[in-house]
Simulated assay, not measured.
Amino acid sequence: MRLVLLGPPGAGKGTQAARLATELDVPAISTGDIFRANVSEGTELGRTAQSYMDEGEYVPDEVTNAMVRERLMAEDATDGFLLDGYPRTPAQVEELDRMLAAAGAELDAVVQLTVDTEEVVKRLAQRASEQHRSDDGEEVQRHRLEVYEKQTAPLVDLYDRRGKLCAVDGLGKVPEVTGRILAVLGRG
């Protein structure tokens, strides 16, 4: 199964990606995790990514696309994957389409986690406190939500028109949300 998880920052994509990867036996590929790993290792990409992340901005497409392309070519992603945090823009959707077409594949579904904005802000504040993340301060949180609305929310319409979108309520206990996702994918 080849999936994309969409939703605003703090919607629970990372939590659900980990659970779904196990349930569906596919790797969860998170651009955020890849960026943070590069930051902690002090790589050039990490320093570049950190400057954007600290401002609540997206890392430029060319950097992100190259990273995702390389990861999707890994052997464990040949038969399926779950993308968390990619694509985020229509240009990235086009690039993902090209990557998949080159492999003779296509997406099976795009799962949109829907959540209340105030709940997202609350979740992000809690995550910032627990994980000491510099990219989760209150001002940065609000800015990230604005950036999401401008750049990523249009993907919802795009994938809906393609018949790939499955909207799922992202509020509730983690196992309940996982169950809802698996049900819309016909795996529950």
Rank of each mutant, 00 (worst) to 15 (best):
113 L>Y: 10
70 E>I: 01
109 A>I: 06
121 V>S: 07
155 L>I: 13
99 M>P: 09
76 D>N: 11
93 V>E: 07
71 R>W: 03
132 H>G: 14
135 D>T: 12
72 L>P: 08
86 Y>K: 04
144 R>Q: 12
150 K>L: 10
72 L>A: 07
152 T>P: 08
74 A>K: 15
105 A>K: 15
86 Y>S: 07
108 D>N: 10
127 R>Q: 08
128 A>P: 11
82 L>V: 10
123 R>P: 11
135 D>S: 00
87 P>I: 07
142 R>F: 09
77 A>N: 08
77 A>C: 10
96 L>A: 06
94 E>C: 01
140 V>A: 07
118 E>K: 11
79 D>S: 13
112 Q>R: 12
162 R>Y: 04
152 T>E: 02
138 E>A: 14
92 Q>A: 11
110 V>R: 05
105 A>Q: 15
106 E>N: 10
161 R>H: 08
113 L>T: 11
105 A>T: 13
149 E>C: 03
160 D>Q: 13
150 K>Q: 14
133 R>M: 12
70 E>Q: 14
124 L>A: 06
163 G>W: 05
96 L>M: 06
167 A>C: 05
102 A>F: 04
97 D>K: 02
140 V>R: 11
105 A>S: 14
149 E>P: 01
142 R>D: 08
71 R>S: 01
107 L>V: 06
152 T>L: 07
94 E>K: 06
129 S>W: 09
114 T>D: 14
126 Q>P: 10
120 V>H: 02
90 P>K: 00
78 T>I: 08
139 E>D: 15
167 A>D: 12
75 E>Y: 00
135 D>M: 11
130 E>N: 11
97 D>M: 01
95 E>G: 00
90 P>A: 04
155 L>D: 00
97 D>G: 07
85 G>W: 09
154 P>C: 08
120 V>Q: 13
70 E>F: 02
156 V>W: 05
123 R>Y: 13
152 T>A: 02
158 L>N: 06
70 E>M: 00
167 A>Y: 07
118 E>P: 02
118 E>R: 11
97 D>P: 03
88 R>T: 02
81 F>L: 05
148 Y>G: 06
120 V>G: 03
149 E>G: 13
114 T>N: 12
101 A>I: 09
77 A>E: 03
162 R>F: 08
89 T>H: 06
119 E>I: 12
168 V>M: 05
104 G>E: 06
102 A>G: 14
73 M>P: 03
74 A>G: 12
139 E>Y: 11
147 V>W: 02
135 D>V: 04
124 L>K: 07
84 D>H: 11
133 R>F: 12
148 Y>C: 05
91 A>P: 03
100 L>A: 00
164 K>A: 13
132 H>C: 00
111 V>C: 02
168 V>Q: 03
148 Y>M: 04
97 D>C: 06
74 A>Y: 02
94 E>A: 13
80 G>D: 00
169 D>H: 09
89 T>I: 04
114 T>W: 00
114 T>S: 13
125 A>Q: 15
107 L>T: 07
103 A>W: 03
105 A>R: 15
165 L>C: 10
145 L>E: 09
74 A>V: 08
106 E>C: 02
120 V>T: 15
112 Q>C: 11
84 D>L: 10
160 D>A: 13
132 H>V: 12
103 A>N: 06
115 V>Q: 14
158 L>R: 09
118 E>G: 08
130 E>I: 07
114 T>F: 02
